[in-house]
């Protein structure tokens, strides 16, 4: 599934916020690339600029320095799906209409796309809540619906900004697994921002560690369960998982105590 071709590359990307309270240098020097079909997790201290990186990749913010390059076989920029921290399901629309939001905006309500939505709802066991209001649903369901809203636009690259942070621990485990399975079975490339180390290790092929602000890449750690013959469903119980966890924990700890 993993090809060695880069899909997105960030070259010395810098970003500063300017406001009346002064300049905030959020990103100092960000360098990494993401391969097609891979699952990358970004971990770092809070406020270090993780969301800013996603906003830059999605094009909502323009870097103040450096380059961002997309590689694609077609002569078109890749489609990017961006899932924000909260599900932001609109309370005046039912589940189905919420999922349609992106298609309405892009004027893409084609029969094929509507069919895709129906399939996704069916596949991920949400068809029975299709016409309910979001307020009637659990946090985990809402998050999966938000994911389907993003997938409806058939993105090549998924950006997930702490999508599970609003959920309680139990739900979090099961929804993160669901989301992982969905992303893998739809063969998407994904970048996940999280401050939960175990979540990062359990889901990603690569973990990118960031420094405190102004933010740089501290380390890039490949996560290689498959090489050791451990399937993704049981990684959390493996020794290797603990090793990865400890390694990342230590590095983050250093980061927080330094200076």
């Amino acid at each position: 599934m993993k090809s060695e071709k880069p899909f997105v590359r960030l070259d010395h990307v810098k970003f500063s916020y300017y406001s009346s309270r002064g300049e905030v240098e959020a990103l100092k020097d960000i360098d990494f690339s993401v391969e097609k079909g891979s699952f990358v997790a970004i971990v770092g201290p809070s406020g270090c600029g993780k969301s800013t990186i996603l906003s830059i990749i999605s094009g909502l913010l323009k870097p103040t320095g450096g380059y961002i390059t997309f590689y694609s076989e077609e002569f078109a920029p890749p489609k990017i799906g961006y899932m924000l921290q909260h599900d932001h399901l609109l309370e005046w629309r039912d589940v189905y209409q919420n999922i349609l939001l992106g298609l309405e905006i892009r004027k893409l309500k084609t029969p094929q796309n509507l069919e895709l939505i129906d399939n996704l709802l069916e596949k991920y066991k949400l068809a029975n809540v299709k016409h309910q209001k979001p307020s009637a649903l659990s946090g985990g369901m809402r998050q999966r619906i938000a994911l389907i809203r993003t997938l409806a636009l058939r993105p090549d690259l998924l950006l997930l900004d702490e999508p599970f942070s609003a959920l309680d621990y139990q739900t979090r485990l099961s929804v993160s697994k669901d989301v992982y399975d969905i992303i893998k079975s739809e063969e998407k490339t994904a970048i996940l921002v999280t401050h939960d180390i175990s979540e990062a290790v359990a889901m990603a092929d690569t973990v990118i560690l960031l420094t405190k602000p102004p933010c740089r890449v501290k380390d890039i750690i490949p996560i290689e369960f498959e090489k050791h013959g451990i399937s993704r469903d049981e990684v959390r119980n493996s020794k290797l998982f603990q090793q990865y966890f400890d390694e990342i924990w230590r590095e983050l700890q250093n980061e927080n105590t330094n200076q």
Partner: peptide
């Protein structure tokens, strides 16, 4: 953040108004 949602879905200012600001 809701307006940002519309941006992430590729919407413009008019759609921010018709999809979020007004109905909300």
């Amino acid at each position: 953040e809701r307006l940002k949602l519309i941006e992430t879905l590729g919407g413009n200012k008019l759609q921010k108004f018709t999809k979020i600001v007004f109905p909300q």
